[in-house]
Write a protein that binds this DNA or RNA. Sequence first.
DNA 1: GCAAATCCGACCTCTTTGCTTGGATTTAAT
DNA 2: ATTAAATCCAAGCAAAGAGGTCGGATTTGC
Lengths: 151, 151
Amino acid sequence: MNITTRGQYGVRAVFELAMRYGQGAVPLREVARRQNLPDNYLEQLMGPLRKAGLVRSVRGAQGGYMLARDPAEITVGDVLRVLEGPISPVDCAGGDAGASACCPDGEACTVRSVWVRIRDAVNEVVDSITFEDLRRQELERRSRRGLVYYI
Amino acid sequence: MNITTRGQYGVRAVFELAMRYGQGAVPLREVARRQNLPDNYLEQLMGPLRKAGLVRSVRGAQGGYMLARDPAEITVGDVLRVLEGPISPVDCAGGDAGASACCPDGEACTVRSVWVRIRDAVNEVVDSITFEDLRRQELERRSRRGLVYYI
DNA sequence: GCAAATCCGACCTCTTTGCTTGGATTTAAT
DNA sequence: ATTAAATCCAAGCAAAGAGGTCGGATTTGC
């Protein structure tokens, strides 16, 4: 049970962009520095996120990335699915075709129902958390620590 | 997000032993055949399960494996933890020491709280499902299909 | 024109996964 | 006592995935 660095870094990057939503384009180098991520690698993740319509980019000098829509409209699940594929503990719980590849009993397979329950629990969590939620949580945390300046 | 074949096969093997609980030792070859698993590989998984006290073995001819205790006293989480280690989507959500390795903010890290919520959701599911639950579910399924003989 | 940035694809090393193989040992049945 | 069935144990191994790096092409504000 693990989320690879693709998903982890992607969520951190989008989180950072959410903290700066409405402030224009942020160069990736700065995102990487703030979140302590390898920027060359992070660059690879932005392509899929852009093609999925989660972020927008501005090319050239003074360019960078920004969220394509309001943080309240982007969930952690959106980002993870783009970077990691379908969120499922095993292929056969994928929902559609994989069931019969896994067990001769197909969808009715008793063990498979375990994987389905895990899958559903995880999806419910990640789809219920928006980056607006995380932004508020982070602002709250910072204010408790007396950090007024966010950048 | 994936459970490897170690965990998957292990759960299937213990499930098969749960279906035969009280019937003495079952040779691994038969478990593998019934669950359609590679038996040489499955053999590797039984050592850890035995050392963890989940199954017992009988050596020699007519030997095999059996559950070490009642199916109601063994959860899916027990098996998965033995074969896959701690159930956590990322190392830094491991609970104890990993937090500070992940983010300078340690336990208070906002993004980390996402991983913790995923971790808790998964653990809650796997710890709530016993092999007695699965055994009952399987018997129910078989009776709906008119299959009276279980072996 | 220069410098800062995104884009794109190839490459590369290390680890993990998912097995297989070969034997050593135990034990019931003959 | 032999044999055959089974668990035990350790090593090896090919393929895939993880986690990057690197080099260059392109765009664009100054």
